[in-house]
């Protein structure tokens, strides 16, 4: 029985990350691409807020690394950015948890922008920085969607028996 509960917890965690990764590489029309939020980042932020003792820097690095493989981007670039995001969330999780929802969304915006900034620096360093201002819209969309992402993931967390 205990093992079953454990398995369910693990399935919930892996399932949410897998869904985020799939959503991140689902085909999208070109015009809509700037409006695709960083699903992996949102899910990572949620779990780091909810269970920082189990999901933190290492998990962040791993999902970032998987993203690097699937994107074909410079190996380690997204991994580094995601590890940093996870670290920041874990450091701030006690405050951020207490915030009202809109203020939480503002913090999420800051985190997602930090993630994008780091990736932009790395891509700039190897001469592949995109020359478009819409580079930043995914973070804004992500922050706007945060309240709903939070509710859905909280629901899944309770069903998965993760506390």
């Amino acid at each position: 029985m205990r093992l079953g509960a454990d398995g369910r917890r693990r399935a919930t965690l892996i399932g949410t990350f897998a869904a985020a990764v799939i959503l991140a590489i689902m085909p999208f029309p070109n015009w809509a691409e700037p409006f695709r939020p960083d699903w992996v980042g949102l899910v990572l932020i949620y779990w780091c807020l909810a269970i920082p003792d189990r999901v933190s820097v290492g998990t962040g690095w791993l999902v970032g690394f998987i993203q690097d493989i699937l994107y074909g981007s410079l190996l380690g670039s997204n991994a580094l950015a995601k590890a940093l995001v996870a670290f920041l969330v874990v450091r701030l999780h006690l405050q951020v948890r207490m915030f009202p929802r809109w203020q939480q969304a503002a913090s999420v915006l800051g985190l997602l922008l930090a993630n994008q900034l780091l990736v932009l620096w790395i891509r700039g360093a190897i001469g592949q920085a995109p020359e478009t201002i819409s580079y930043w819209t995914p973070s804004i969309v992500g922050a706007v969607l945060w309240p709903w992402v939070f509710i859905i993931l909280r629901d899944l967390r309770r069903r998965g028996g993760i506390s």
């Binding site: 920082p52 003792d53 933190s56 410079l74 190996l75 380690g76 580094l80 590890a83």
Partner: peptide
């Protein structure tokens, strides 16, 4: 950090180690 035994490396240590690993990977890859 709550719920973590004292022997385990702290989040900051892990971040520093993983950052070093990432930078090494990026350099090798590029």
């Amino acid at each position: 950090v709550f719920g973590r035994s004292l022997g385990a490396p702290s989040h900051l240590t892990r971040l520093v180690l993983l950052s070093a690993l990432s930078v090494a990977l990026m350099m090798l890859d590029h």
